[in-house]
Design a binder for these strands. Structure first.
Lengths: 196, 196
DNA sequence: AGGTTTTCTTAACCTAGATCAAGCTGCTTT
DNA sequence: AAAGCAGCTTGATCTAGGTTAAGAAAACCT
């Protein structure tokens, strides 16, 4: 298998500057993997072993409650990261599943390598600090929007902001991500087409 | 005014180790301030100039929508940070207000000092990376819980997790934080007392 | 200490979105 | 090409929580 790290190097390079030596060291910590549609890369109850960078394909992280209901926590497309972060950082059992929604190619780093990476190239602290700050801001907006907007407003916002996801994942997962039922989404879409 | 930085040094010291020299440099970037109850330290529409660490007192960050409705985004008690992070990082107008709910004492750092701090003591990248990771995890849990649990469940969870906040802030702000109305919270509390 | 403002409660009525159930469409798989 | 499943739609009915309005109780001045 060809392990092509150019995408992640390009991505990292947009935030921090690495020497060729550092790039080589960095990629030595990484593992390139292909996973097939419907395959899980994290399972509820098992420790999340890796941070995952999506090179190609699509994933969702989701939670299943006591009644067996699914809640989509996050989608991840090309150039996004996905993991059960709490599980990964504390090395304790995961709350979420992470599932491939398409045949995908990913780059993974495990916990020990991550620690080593921070030690050997401290700049990665800056990189992940910035990444986390951005992710935090987006989540905060998501909460406010879930409380201040109607289901319809959130749906329209979503398809505007993430048109690619709209195209690639089943509607019922989008409904779940936005916090309502597939039936209700179906009704919203009905209305949309009968207007526009 | 006595600028006592021991609380923030202790707090930072739990995550990273600083030399006495670094501690001195760090505190040289900080500003100690007292603010009175009802005072705003960030205003919607104005650039958020500082990251704020709460030494003593209590704050809330909140959003006001087009209809004039308030949504509490975050509370901050002793040893918590508060800001409109997006506004601070991008130095653009804030979405949220941050208001003192009690007479409070805070430690602030402005944008340029922050940049300088990261440059001169790179360890602070580690510090804020870890801080943000923790904050991210909490927010993700808050979203899942807002979709998977009833108002009552979220309320009980909240008072169990943050008993201090329950005591110190008006009920209607807690209702707002949890995503429902004060009237409904009142009903919940009624039921509670008529049971337990 | 009395008046004002803020917060909390109660009650009647209302609605966004849920639930349940059934049928439809279109992929896969053999 | 048939069968089977996964995803989407539609309709009837239901409910958690919202809204409006008014009064009660604290808290906060001066």
């Amino acid at each position: 298998m060809t392990a092509d790290y150019s995408s992640i190097l390009e991505y990292v390079g947009r935030v921090i500057t690495l020497s060729d030596q550092e790039k080589a060291l960095f990629t030595s910590f990484l593992r390139y993997r292909k996973v097939r549609k419907r395959q899980y890369i994290v399972q509820q109850g098992a420790v999340c072993q890796h941070e995952t960078f999506v090179v190609k394909g699509c994933f969702r992280a989701f939670y299943i409650d006591d009644h067996g209901k699914e809640y989509v926590v996050q989608f991840a497309l090309e150039n996004w990261w996905v993991a059960d972060l709490r599980s990964f950082l504390t090395q304790t059992p995961a709350d979420y599943y992470v599932e491939a929604l398409e045949n995908s190619e990913i780059i993974q780093i495990d916990f020990d390598s991550m620690e080593e990476l921070y030690r050997q190239i401290p700049q990665f602290n800056t990189f992940f600090r910035i990444l986390m700050q951005r992710a935090f801001i987006v989540l905060q907006q998501r909460i406010v929007s879930s409380y201040s907007k109607t289901a319809e407003e959130r749906y329209l916002e979503f398809i505007k902001r993430y048109p690619q996801i709209e195209q690639r994942v089943p509607q019922y997962m989008i409904a779940s991500y936005l916090g309502f039922t597939p039936e209700f989404l179906s009704r919203l879409r009905q209305q949309q087409t009968h207007r526009g």
